[in-house]
């Protein structure tokens, strides 16, 4: 159930890249609140600024002007070390490309966030197998990541995003590289996490069908939130 106060809120976010003539403004003043436990789709065409917005919300980048707050705290005022810890503890990431280390075992790949967090070996292994069980990939734990199929790879990635028991999972085109059947399976997995574990879901996509399954859709067009998109079903504003 969505809570009262937002976990992430953006205020008047402007993001420009480059300087002088080459300057390019990706976001031109975006404000939004993400409540705990909700699922949000950020949709837009390629180059609309949707990925930039996700990067800013995920604290991977800083806005040129405006603020991003996590649990009411202005992230711009937090030191880099705190931001790293925040991302490590609270966020999970699923990317269109899997970013798995093909030569290492599936388990090794999945426990990477715990390794970064400094969790001990035995604990890492236990939680890694637990996360793999949630995505039904336990039997592949010892296989090399490169030997997995596309769907299995994305499940491994989701296990990796899950392992630190995050509050928020950021998913950038999570089904973009998958066929529709496998894609549907991955979608179910993500929405199950959202429903059963209350993990907030922020999905960047250009897939309208995937977006429709989310609680809320944010259409980004030319760097701003498009307030009058075409009609959609299941909208809750």
């Amino acid at each position: 159930m969505p809570a009262e106060s937002p976990v992430i809120s953006g205020r008047d976010i402007i993001k420009t890249y480059g300087k002088g003539d080459g300057q390019f403004t990706a976001l031109r003043g975006v404000s939004l609140d993400v409540k705990a436990g909700e699922s949000i789709a950020i949709i837009g065409k390629s180059g609309s600024g949707k990925s930039t917005l996700m990067h800013l919300l995920a604290l991977l980048d800083k806005p040129s002007t405006g603020t991003v707050s996590i649990d009411g705290q202005d992230a711009g005022r937090l030191p880099g070390r705190t931001l790293n810890t925040l991302r490590n503890k609270k966020f999970g990431f699923v990317f269109q490309q899997f970013f798995l280390n093909g030569g290492a075992s599936v388990l090794e790949n999945v426990i990477l966030p715990l390794k970064i967090a400094g969790v001990h070996g035995r604990e890492r292994r236990r939680r890694g197998l637990e996360a793999l069980r949630q995505v039904e990939l336990e039997d592949k734990a010892k296989n090399k990541a490169k030997d997995l199929s596309g769907g299995q790879k994305q499940r491994a990635v989701i296990a990796r995003a899950l392992i630190n028991e995050p509050q928020i999972i950021f998913a950038d085109e999570p089904t973009g590289n998958l066929d529709s059947a496998t894609g549907a399976h991955i979608e179910n997995l993500l929405f199950n996490l959202n429903k059963r574990h209350g993990i907030t879901l922020i999905i960047v996509t250009h897939d309208e069908d995937l977006a429709r399954r989310c609680d809320r859709q944010l259409h980004i067009k030319d760097g701003v939130i498009d307030v009058a998109p075409r009609p959609r079903r299941g909208v809750r504003l």
Binding site: A58, L60, G80, R81, N84, T85, L86, R87, N88, K89, F93, Q97, F99, N101, L112, P113, I116, A117
Partner: peptide, 16 residues
């Protein structure tokens, strides 16, 4: 490059 990016996204500091 991608792996470094991923590790940084997951909270690994530049020093590490």
């Amino acid at each position: 490059t991608k792996e470094i990016g991923l590790m940084k996204a997951m909270g690994m500091g530049g020093g590490r």
